[in-house]
Design a protein around this nucleic acid. Structure first.
Lengths: 194, 194, 194, 194
DNA sequence: CATGAATGAGTTTTCATTCAT
DNA sequence: TATGAATGAAAACTCATTCAT
C-alpha cells in the first residue's frame, strides 16, 4: 500500500472528530447515530471504536478539545492588567472572530451545555472561561470601571448577549461582519460599564 | 371512591403534559423515552397515545401551549405607545418573573429552538415574540430612543442576555430575586438605549 | 329509558357479529382490531367482552354460525336420491345464489380456512359440507355418472372452481348473474361427469 | 474457520427469505412477527433490517420473486400457437409440478392475494399470468376450441380448480401424484373445451 | 490496524383485554 | 348491563457496540 492510498492513523482520528463535531452541532448528541459519523468521516463504523471507547467518550473528547481551543483563542496572550476597556474589546473581537471562523464548533459547544453525558473533565473546563471572566469583572467592579452588580450577572449578560448574536448569525437574521461586531461590542460594553 | 383517589380524564392529560415538559427540559426530546414520561406521570405507557398521536405531537402541543402562555404573560396588555423605557421595563420584569415562576418551561422552550421535529404551527408561534420585539425596537430606533443599530442585533442582545441570566438562575450561579432583575434591567437598557 | 333509545341485548350481539364478519372479511383476523369492531357495531369496546370471552371466541362463533347457514342453504331439503344432474344443478345454483347474496360471508369463511385460531368445533363443521359432497360423488362414481376419479379430487375441482368464480365476482372481473351461473354450472358439470 | 461454520452475506439474506416465505405461508402476513422470522432464519432481529427496509418491503420482495418464478416455470417456452390441447396440457402439468415441488410458495402466493400491503410492482406482476391465460382462452374461444363463455369465467374455473386441488394436497386429502395430475387435467379440460 | 455485517437491548407505537363508573 | 379510558405486553424498528475477517 502506498502512502497516497491510505490516511495515517492520526488523519483517521481527525476525520472522525471533524465529522462528529459537525453532526453533533447539526442534530445534537442523541440525534446523531455513530454509523452516520463513520459515513461522513469515510471510515468504517468499527474504526471509531479503535480511537474512542464509546460515543460518550467521543463527545467528551470533542468538547474538551474545542472548549480548550476557544479558551486559548479568547484568552491567549490577554493581559488582565491592561485597561478594562481594551481587555473587553479584545475579548469581544476574539470571541466573535472565533465564532465567525468556527460556527459549527460554537454551535456544538453551546448545544452540549450541561448535558448529562458530559464527564467531570468536561464540566471542569466548561467553567474555565467563566472563572477568568468573573475574575476580570470582579477586579473591574472593585476599580469602579464596571457597574456595582454581581460579577455572575455581568458574565451572564455578556456571554448571553454573545450567544444571542451568534445564534442570529446562524439563523441568518444577522450578519457577523466587522461592523456588526463593533456595534455589538459597544452595546455590550455599555451594559456592564459603570 | 373519594375524589382524591382518582384522576379525571383531563387530569391525566395534564399529568402527561407536566411530566413531559419536565423531562424534555431536563434531558431534551431525543433523550427522553416515552415510558419515562408515563412513569413520571403515573400512567401506563399506552395512555399517552390516547391523548397524543405521537411523541412529536406531544412535544409540539407542549411547545405551542407554553410559548403562547409566555407570549401572553410578556405582551398581554402591553401598549407599545407607552414610553419606550416603561415598555422595556415591563417587558423585562414580566419575562424575568415568568422565568422565575416557570423555570422548567423556559428551559423547555429554549431547548426546542429550531428543532427538526417542530411543526409549522410551532415554528410560526416561535416568531411571534420576536416580531413584536423587532417592531418595538424599530420604532424606538426611529425615535432615536435606541442605538442606531439593526433591530435584529438589539433583539439578539436583549433576548440573549435574558437567556444568559436565566441560565445563571438554573445553574444557581445567580439568584433571580427582585434586586437582580432590577439590576439586570438597568444593564440591558444601557446596552440598547442611545 | 324508552324502547326506542336502546337496542335489546340480542340486537347488540348481532351488531357485533355483523360488524366483525365484515371487518374480518375485509382485513383478516390479525388485521382487524377489536376496538374497530366495536366502533363499526356502535357499541363500547368492553361490550364485546360481555358477549364473547375473546377475539378468538368471536371469530369461532362467527365461523360456526355462518358455515352452518351455508350448509343449510346449500344442502337443506336436498335429496341425494334425486338424479345426480339435478342434485348438482341445485347445489350449484344454491351455492352461487348464497354467494351472490352474502358475498362478505363467503369471503370471511374462505379467509379463515385452516387458520390456527379456529377451534375444534369450527374445524369439525368445516368438513361437514365436504363430507356430504364426497358421499354424493362416491355414489355417483359407483353409478358411473361421474368420472372414475377420487371423490376428493372431484370435490376439490368443484369447490375450487366455485371459489375461483366467486373471487372473480369480488374482483369485478366477473358478474355473478344468472347467465354466468348457468354457464359455469355447465362447465363444472362437464368437469366431473363421465 | 471452515466453510460450514459461517454463512456468506447472500446466504443470510436467503435464510431470511426462506424463513419468511414459510411463516407467511403458515400464518399470514399480520400473523407473523418479525422476530419469529429472525429466529427461524437463525439471525438477529436487527439483521432483517439490514436487508429489507421494512416487513412490507420483505413481503413484496418475496411476492415478486416467487410470482416471477412461477410465471417462468409455467409459461417459459410455452408457444401459444401450439394446439390448444397441448398448451393446456403443458400448462397444467407445469403448474401442478411447480406446486408439488414448492407447496409453501404456492400457499404463500395465494394467501397474499389482493393484500393491502402489496405495492404497485407486486400488483402488476400478479396480473401477468392471468393476462396470458385470458389471451390464450380468447383465442381458443374464437377458434371454437373452447366453450363460448367469457374468458374470465374459464380462467376463474381453471385457476380455481388448480387451487382447490393444490389445497387438497396441503390438507392431505389428495396426493399430487402423476396419476392425479393427469386425471385432474382431463377433468378441467372437459370443463372448458367445447 | 481497519472494516462493516451482525447483533440485541432499547425505542416508539399498537391493541386485546380489564374494570371503575 | 354497558361503557370506554386505561393498561402493559408485544409489535415493528433503530442503533451503539462487537468481532470475524
Amino acid at each position: 500500500m502506498t502512502a497516497a492510498s491510505s490516511l495515517s492513523t492520526s488523519d483517521k482520528r481527525d476525520a472522525i472528530l471533524a465529522a462528529a463535531v459537525e453532526l453533533f452541532a447539526e442534530r445534537g448528541f442523541y440525534g446523531t447515530a455513530v454509523p452516520d459519523i463513520a459515513t461522513r468521516a469515510k471510515v468504517g463504523a468499527g474504526t471509531i471504536y479503535r480511537y474512542f471507547p464509546s460515543k460518550e467518550a467521543l463527545v467528551n473528547t470533542l468538547f474538551q478539545h474545542h472548549k480548550q481551543r476557544l479558551v486559548e483563542a479568547v484568552l491567549g496572550g490577554l493581559d488582565l492588567s491592561w485597561p478594562a476597556r481594551k481587555v473587553f474589546s479584545e475579548f469581544w473581537r476574539r470571541t466573535c472572530t472565533f465564532a465567525r471562523e468556527n460556527p459549527k464548533i460554537i454551535q456544538f459547544l453551546e448545544l452540549q451545555h450541561h448535558a448529562p453525558y458530559l464527564d467531570e473533565a468536561s464540566r471542569r473546563i466548561e467553567h474555565q472561561l467563566l472563572g477568568t471572566a468573573t475574575a476580570f469583572l470582579e477586579q473591574g467592579i472593585a476599580q469602579q470601571v464596571f457597574r456595582d452588580a454581581s460579577p455572575s450577572l455581568l458574565t451572564a449578560i455578556v456571554w448571553g448577549a454573545f450567544r444571542g448574536i451568534f445564534q442570529g448569525g446562524c439563523d441568518e437574521t444577522l450578519t457577523l461582519d466587522d461592523a456588526t461586531i463593533a456595534s455589538s461590542e459597544q452595546c455590550v460594553w455599555e451594559a456592564i460599564r459603570r
